[in-house]
Design a protein around this nucleic acid. Structure first.
Lengths: 203, 203
DNA sequence: CGTTGGACTAGAATATAGTTCTAGATCATG
DNA sequence: CATGATCTAGAACTATATTCTAGTCCAACG
């Protein structure tokens, strides 16, 4: 069982089994993407990573914490994809919707995983915090929208409604696409949805 | 413990503990709506209904079957609300989007429950069948849309995309609203979303 | 009436999964 | 080379869904 690491330590403090930690994360991601969060057991992760129960719980608080750690990376990846080239209202709106679609089509299992956790978060206390971080709630987006409203670039819609018009179709489309119920060329879908998003909110 | 029933029997066949069955369904719905599917235990249902484990499993194949039975009613309620008064393209599209919003705002827990099951269905085999029945896949809607396309009433979009434009925002809005993240008067949100849906697809 | 068979009720037993715990191994440091 | 923090082991514990074995009840039939 892989005698584990001991990395370069500088000062006088600890040296963690970083590789072990990584291998656990990696194995967990594999399992979650393949079978979903609920269906994945700690045992699956144990076997896939070669770590023992003890190690897993040494590094992470539990299955939920593991998912949370992975989710943060996922969201980061998506946010990156949704960054607009310029900051005109049109570019921002289209990048939000189009970026989500494009990211989701490139990482279908990741999207499904994210969607699963988001849903569970509604009732599972261990995911409580993530709900806002996720899809919805990106506070900055709301303020950006307000700014565009003031500049009369977009319609003066309540943020929840604007959010729904911009991201709702993208989200919905990905849900269909990632469960094999959409037959459209990816590129075309992305364009259609980004354009529609802009059309729905432009002033 | 409620001696249970014995209803009117006609021919020569059995007479079921219908009341017991109903009480179990009722209790299960209460629990699912209150705590969500995952968080609800058989024990919760047992206590809430007064039935024993044996009875519950006598009438239902398990937790999943219970959820499925309840879900069918839920979907029926929603479908009812989404029926259009006339069958012009505009009326149908607006009724689909607006009806979903209006139904969801009236039955927020039911919407959350439906959304939870839909998400679980992606990976849980016991819910496999429901995925199509649910939100997406209403086959008839797809053909209706095709008909409107032929009549040049709506844009010639791939169904997955059209579906996303019509129902995506409604779904998204309900997700925000039912988790307390939307501050808009219900009536106004419903109108905005229904109008936007029509604007997105009209020819 | 009494028996009988199916419907229903009980609740203990079982299986599976997440989590906790106690013991021990490893190793940089003094 | 003793020490203490870190990490590894895996057994034990807990909670939950489900199955099983006995019943109990009752309508119909003789």
């Amino acid at each position: 069982m892989a005698r584990a690491t001991a990395k370069k330590v500088k000062s006088r403090k600890r040296l963690t089994g970083d590789e072990r930690r990584e291998s656990i994360l990696e194995a967990a991601l594999g399992c979650f993407l393949e079978k979903g969060y609920i269906a994945t057991t700690i045992n699956d992760i144990r076997e896939a990573s070669g770590a023992t129960t003890g190690s897993i719980y040494h590094f992470f608080d539990g299955k939920g914490a593991l998912a949370l750690a992975l989710l943060e990376d996922a969201v980061a990846g998506w946010s990156g994809e949704a960054k607009a080239a310029s900051d005109t209202a049109e570019a921002v709106v289209k990048a939000s919707a189009g970026g989500l679609v494009s990211w989701g089509l490139k990482n279908p299992e990741l999207f499904r995983f994210m969607d699963e956790i988001r849903t569970l978060a509604v009732t599972a206390p261990e995911f409580a915090g993530i709900a806002d971080t996720l899809a919805e709630g990106q506070g900055s987006a709301a303020t950006a929208y307000t700014r565009f409203v003031k500049a009369r670039k977009v319609k003066d819609l309540p943020w929840a409604v604007a959010h729904s018009m911009i991201l709702g179709p993208a989200y919905n489309y990905l849900r269909l696409a990632t469960t094999g119920r959409a037959r459209v060329a990816a590129k075309r879908a992305q364009e259609l949805i980004a354009d529609a998003a802009w059309a729905s909110v432009k002033a």
